[in-house]
Structures are given as C-alpha cells and as structure tokens.
Simulated assay, not measured.
Amino acid sequence: MDKTTQWEAGIPVLANKDVVIIGGSLAGIACAVELAKAGQQVMIIEPRTYLGRELTASLRPWLDLSSREDGKWPELIQFVVEQSAAQADAADMAHIPLQPDRLKRSLEDKLMAYGIELIYASLPVAIISNDQESGLEGIVIANKMGSQFIRCSKLIDTTETAIVSRLRGEPVVDLAFNEKAAFARTLEFTGVEWPDKAAEELMTYAVPDDLGLLGGQVRLMEGYRGKQHRYVEYWLELASANEIAAAGERELEARRSGMALAAYLVKHVPAFRKAVLCGSSFELHGPFPLRGAEMQ
C-alpha cells in the first residue's frame, strides 16, 4: 500500500473519530483532554504499552518544583501530582518523586474521565487521503492483531520521531549520523545510605573523567521509596541520527557506560557500598544540543 493513498476495502474500520493523536506523551494527553473538552471525539495511539514517556520510558519520575509558574502546575501535571506523588514533605525537597505505576494509571484515568479512547502497542503505517478539502480520510495502524483503519478528519503527532511527517513524505531535519548530541540515562538503586541532609536531596556528584560522562558528574534524585531509594542520572555524548544503526550504537554505549558507572559507585562511593542496582531507563532521554545539556 502506498503510504498516502486512497483507502481501499479490506482493512477493518476500527473507529470513526474527529481527531487521532499519535503518541501518549504528556503533551499528547494534555492536547487530547483539551480537544475532548471542546466536544471532539478523540483517540490516542501509543506505540508503547504505557503513557507519559517523558517520565516513564526515560525513568525520570520526578517533577522539579522550580518549574512551576507562579507556584502552580498546569492542570494535567497537578492531577499527576495529586494522584501519584510519593508521600513526602515537599517543603524539604527541591523535587516531587512520583510512583511510576501510579503515574501510568493516573494518566489512563484522566483519559477515561473525558471519554478518550486509547490503543497501546500500535504504530501508524499509512495515512489515507481523500478528495475532500481536508485531504485526510484517516490512518492505518498495525499491531499484533494486524492492520486497522481509523477514520478521522484531524491527525496530531506528539511523538519524538515525527512519525506522521515521515509517513507523509514531508521533510524532517535529522542530524547527520556523524553528529553528536547529549542523551541522558537513569539507573535506579535501593539501599543507598546517603547522609540525611535536606539540602542534598537534589544534588550532583563528581565522578572520574575516565567514565566518559558529560560534565564529569551524575545527578542523584531521591526516589518515591524514601532516602535509600535513589535515581542516578548520567549524560553521554552520542550519535544523534534517527536511524536504526545510530539507535543501536547509542543503546550499546549507554549500557556500557551505565554498568561502568554502577560498578564505580558500588566499589568507591561509601553511600553505595550496600546498594543494589534494581533497574535502568527503558529509553534514553534526548537528544539535546551538547552545550548546556548536562543535568537538564
């Protein structure tokens, strides 16, 4: 099938919607809620099996209190805080730790409250045009059940890879394969015996240059389980292109660096001597320009 073509019979029609949003990021969810409030019938297609990739896939389940404008969160973020924030004294903290599973469920609850349908583990594979003024008939998605057609008059892409633009054959500016950018990865530890100082709740820690980390430091974030639960965020300079080869190279390098960092912390940092590495982020956070990217 041509990626942008007239729809032909044979693909089952899954739904008829006003708007289909590709990507269940926080931006995608906020957009869906506002459209639903305006009376639009909305569906979200998410390639992953959970929502909120900015906080979940990258294992960055915290909110920086300094990011609030006039001491207030946007509606969706406020809802997330109320539903999934860890029980902690925010007055003594520079950030709010979030419980990842509660976070994912709260985002699903938000969509359900506004009648927004959600389909997980599905990818758009074709955009179908028509002869009408809008030029859009709908979109074909693929998943383990096969292909399905969703008829819609509007399509919004909130993915980090511009899937819709690529399907339409529109120009997408990617950095060349040999160009570099900054990416972050997060390790998760339990049993960390860090000094009980409120001022050090959000802090950086210097590490040897031979670990190859941007800025020569890591960021230590208290997790939702309390003082002994820490997220260790580190930044790397990696190939930036949106290509399979570059993605594989990034993943291998990030894993090698993460294991080297974990070994260093456990062997040489007293607070981590009894710590247990219990996880790492599913995806890298980035890309970001190299200048000033560390510790965003």
Rank of each mutant, 00 (worst) to 15 (best):
K3D: 12
A9D: 14
K17C: 12
I21E: 10
I22K: 01
I22M: 09
G23I: 09
L26K: 02
L26E: 14
A27R: 10
I29S: 04
E34Y: 06
E34Q: 15
A36I: 11
A36D: 12
A38F: 07
V42H: 01
M43E: 10
M43W: 04
I44K: 02
L51W: 02
L51I: 02
E54P: 05
L55C: 09
T56P: 00
A57H: 03
A57C: 03
S58I: 15
L63W: 07
L63H: 07
S67M: 14
S67W: 13
E69A: 11
P74N: 11
E75D: 09
I77V: 15
Q78I: 05
V81H: 02
V81C: 05
E82V: 00
A86I: 07
Q87C: 04
D89S: 07
A91N: 12
M93Q: 07
L98V: 11
L98K: 02
L98C: 04
Q99E: 15
Q99L: 13
L103P: 03
R105E: 15
L111W: 08
I116Q: 06
E117Y: 05
E117H: 09
L118E: 05
I119Y: 09
L123W: 13
P124H: 06
P124E: 01
P124K: 01
A126P: 00
I127W: 00
I127T: 04
I128M: 11
I128C: 11
S129N: 06
N130G: 02
D131L: 08
D131C: 00
Q132L: 11
G135R: 09
L136E: 05
I139Q: 08
I139P: 07
A142L: 10
A142E: 15
N143D: 15
K144W: 11
S147R: 15
Q148G: 03
F149V: 09
I150F: 10
I150H: 02
L155M: 01
D157M: 06
T158F: 07
I163H: 05
S165N: 11
S165F: 06
R166Y: 06
P171I: 14
P171Y: 13
V172N: 01
D174A: 07
L175W: 09
A176E: 15
E179H: 11
E179M: 13
A181H: 04
A181F: 03
A181E: 01
F183W: 08
T186R: 02
E188Y: 10
G191I: 13
W194I: 14
D196E: 13
E200K: 08
E200T: 14
L202A: 11
A206N: 08
V207W: 04
D210V: 09
L211N: 01
G215P: 02
Q217W: 02
R219I: 13
L220G: 05
L220P: 02
R225I: 01
Q228P: 01
H229E: 09
E233G: 00
W235E: 00
A241Q: 14
E243T: 15
I244N: 08
A246Q: 11
A247V: 12
G248I: 06
R250V: 01
L252W: 05
A254I: 00
R255N: 14
R256D: 14
A260R: 15
L261Q: 07
A262M: 04
L265C: 05
V269P: 00
P270Y: 04
A271C: 07
F272T: 00
A275N: 04
L277Q: 04
S281Q: 03
L284Y: 04
L284P: 00
F288H: 03
L290I: 13
A293P: 05
E294W: 06
M295K: 03
